[in-house]
Amino acid sequence: MKAFSDIRVASLLALALLVAGGFALPEWALFLMTIGLAKALVSLGIVVQMRAGLVSFGQGLFFCIGAYVAGLMANFAGLTDIFVLTGIAVIACLAVGGLFGPLLANYRGIFFAMLSLSLSMILYGVLSKMNSLGGTDGLNVAAPTFAGYAPEGRALSLSLYLYTSFIVVAIGAVLRTGFDSQHGLVSLAVRSNELRVEYLGASVRRTNAINYVISAMLGGIGGVITGLAIGHVDPEYAYWTTSGEFVFVAILAGYLSIPAVFVASIILELVRSFSNLYFPNTWQMVLGVFLLVIILTLPNGLGSLFHRKREGGS
């Protein structure tokens, strides 16, 4: 009960801060925050799996499915309502995740990483070949509408940002509750000792499959928002470097804290944006050094800064 109200207070506080930020921030920062938060949702999916000791290198698969749902629905069915698009993307990712989740749940470590990566690269290959969908160049996506409201200019940036903020806070709260639930705690146990979990009567395979499906849906939501915000989708969304970036954020954040994932994602966007501006020839190196420093100084990620690891995890 206490834990519940604790999360509620934190969520409301976070939402208030985000909404206030929406009215205070300049437009470029709003856009950067929207993309940062949307991509953080995908990384959050990796964090869900990281808690059970698995790292997926193929979150781009669901990111891309989400983005293409937005792109295809807008181009071929004239659907631009962001609520409907998010719903369709979640269903699509649920279906694909549900199909591959039980299969991938049998694998661990590098095998899991490579298999998940290969799935996303298959989608990349297929989309690159489909000239009717623009091939490697992709296709443009119309601006979203919000239940009939069709904003433009700053209002559009703000609406997208607020929509993202609501989703992020809601998902953050649900996941926090989930992490502290039986399933969430079993995930942590799987990370430390699979055999013992099986002996205690819980199914490791089932835990991993459920985590995979959850992360699939998170990837889809992140993809829809990013696709709509950017206004363009291409097969690059499923490319391994895109997936690698989500892993980058997940490592940066660590698996201890949910807010840390969002902070890490926004910091990454900021570092990239400004290193691009000030070091146009060496921005990749700046990013690399940044990640190295974080790994060396905070091996458990940013999350360990504001989350002291309690005994028994969480």
């Binding site: 807010p259 940013l302 800064l305 504001f306």
Partner: peptide, 11 residues
């Protein structure tokens, strides 16, 4: 949780 969130936001 609240504390953590505040420090996250501060960051």
């Amino acid at each position: 949780t609240v504390k953590r969130l505040v420090s996250a936001t501060a960051a």
